[in-house]
Design a protein around this nucleic acid. Sequence first.
DNA 1: ATTATGAGCACTGTGAGACC
DNA 2: GGTCTCACAGTGCTCATAAT
Length: 458
Amino acid sequence: MAENVLSGTTLEFDMSQKDLNDFRMYVGKCLLSGKVSSFQEDITSIDSSMEQFGEMSTDTGSSEDVHIQTVISVDKSICDDDEQSTLEDNTSALGDNVGNVRYPCAICGNEFTDLQDFLDHMQKHLKEIKKGKKAAASTTLCNKKNSKDTSTVNNQSNTKPARYCIFCDKYCLQLSRHIQLVHKEEDRVKAALKFSPRTKNKMFSQFKKEGIHLNNIEKLGKDSHAVLERERISQKDSVQVMCDNCNAILTKKAMSRHRATCQGGSSKQINAIPAQFFIKDNDVSESFVKNILTKFTKDDIGKICKSDNLVKKVGSILWAKNRTKVDQLSQVRKSVMNDMRRLAHAYNFFKEEVKKDHPLLLNTAADMFNRIFFKDLQEAVCKYTEVGDQYGKTSFKLKHGLKYALYYVLKKSAEILRAEHLSKFSIRVWIQKSKENLQKKSYLYKFYRDLKLCLDAV
DNA sequence: ATTATGAGCACTGTGAGACC
DNA sequence: GGTCTCACAGTGCTCATAAT
């Protein structure tokens, strides 16, 4: 019949010794009247409205105040529409010696001579009980969240996902408020708070997007096939793109509408960066591995071609672009491999140049596009494209064809690097994410900024 | 008393289908 | 690729509450 909606809920009451004694007296009377089946320190039931008072224990260590922990199971009927009638049915009115009717409260021990007063009082306890249920549920959820890592937090609820905070690496359900309260001293937050509410909200929304973006980068670092986090879950496995203005991840179709809102009144050109540039970062197709990567020889250049991320990325994009030319597969393959080897060669010369002046360990061919090494790159290109001294020291000859080819490969690489940078190392995120890192790599930031300006101007 | 956070509610903006 | 429309996931705001 009735369902115990609060079954297992723990409610704690602080009662005085007197109240406890009264309460015990009340239950004792209920026992005598047959409405309670048993009464010990662990009370199991009182009547049909408050069926069970179980696991009752007292801490008699303190003087006047007695802490009572009671587990209450409440009949659903008292929480529903008919709770009034149920309560009326269970007032358990007790008569005293002079015939006055008293209505003692089973929870707090108060006595009422007026039925309505008693019912109002019980309503108050019902509210407390309901709140107690919510609090218990909330505490449980909170504990669960605290013990879980980031990805599982989002799965906890289907409604509001916790968002990644770029300032403290925590996940918060109300990120904007959290940032406003906890990170109000951050420069970017200070700046955002100075704007109008509309602009401020937009800037806080940007913090959220950056958090999502950073989280996705981390996920991709661990697993290139990881399911990416986004603002809204797509029910369909649609093509995803990223807005190069705000880093929002959207479906390709939603981009045109997003462009209008994101652009606002600005004349700035907003582009969608295709998924190939950021979703599957280092992921190269099987055909690329089979037809290109496995074909390189085991010399130094071949090793660079097979291992360097930038060289691989350039190669895979060139391969993906031309693989539709099925009848020219062999030519395309040779062309891609040549471009990759040219890039690797250039990097090899570049490394030699850099080693002369800077005892730095270069990690990737992408360092060639670092503006502080621009002169080294120039030197490397010259050395790579000049014939050498076979015609005598005074008659250096230039390999024009190679230099042109190298120019286009470097240009292509720069475009790819830019796309990668916009998607993976957003300047704004980068600045905020790691100031220390930024100090070390401030030259890269300037380089990317200048490169972007140059490319925008073209 | 203050701060930080969760729940509930009303509203906004995105996803997706249809159509051009 | 753009526009329209509908459904609904997710947001901000307010209130309540736990933690300090």
